[in-house]
Structures are given as structure tokens and as C-alpha cells.
Amino acid sequence: MTDTDWPLWEVFVRSRRGLSHTHAGSLHAPDAELALRNARDLYTRRGEGVSIWVVPSAAITASSPDEKDPFFEPAADKPYRHPTFYEIPEGVKHL
């Protein structure tokens, strides 16, 4: 029996109420319960969190590695989705 049998978990920590959970790092643990306990000891020793999620790394589906790849291209050529695309006469307020 070695540690390799322990799956990898990704740890997400909510630093305080009102904020979303943010990826903090990863760790190995045999099950979800111990992953949570280990995550508490590893990532919140100084009160960095009020809530923790642990997710098996194998359960995460990711887009391809290159951030510039065609997967994201449809968003690049639509500047009209941004408010700065539109010209508004000076002096018009609350717009």
C-alpha cells in the first residue's frame, strides 16, 4: 500500500462570506472526508477560509491547454458585446 493509491483532490476555499470559492491548491487523500480535513490543515491554518470544497481532480473537465486556441475565438471578434463599442454624444448622462 502506497500513497499513489490516494487520489488527487482540488481544493477550493471561500475566504469570507460574500465571495466565491477560489482554487487554493491540491492534495492527496483516500476519501472526501479526509480530503476536507487535510485541506483545512493545509490551506486554512491562519483563518483563510470559512468554507472548503474538495473535488476529485479526475472529475474536472478542462478545455485544451492553449488559451489562444480556436475554442475561445468566437468571443474575440465581437467587440459590440462591450459597452465601450458604442459612441454616445458628450453630456448624455446615466448611460
Binding site: E10, S57, I60, T61, A62, S63, S64, P65
Partner: peptide, 16 residues
């Protein structure tokens, strides 16, 4: 598409 775990266990063969 690839799982996030793939890059940890098979990072070298897949990408390097």
C-alpha cells in the same frame, strides 16, 4: 478536451 488530472499523471507524454 482533457481532464485536469491528465496533465498531472500523463503531462510529459501528452505535451512534452
Amino acid at each position: 478536451m482533457a481532464t485536469a488530472a491528465a496533465h498531472r499523471t500523463a503531462g510529459a507524454p501528452a505535451y512534452g
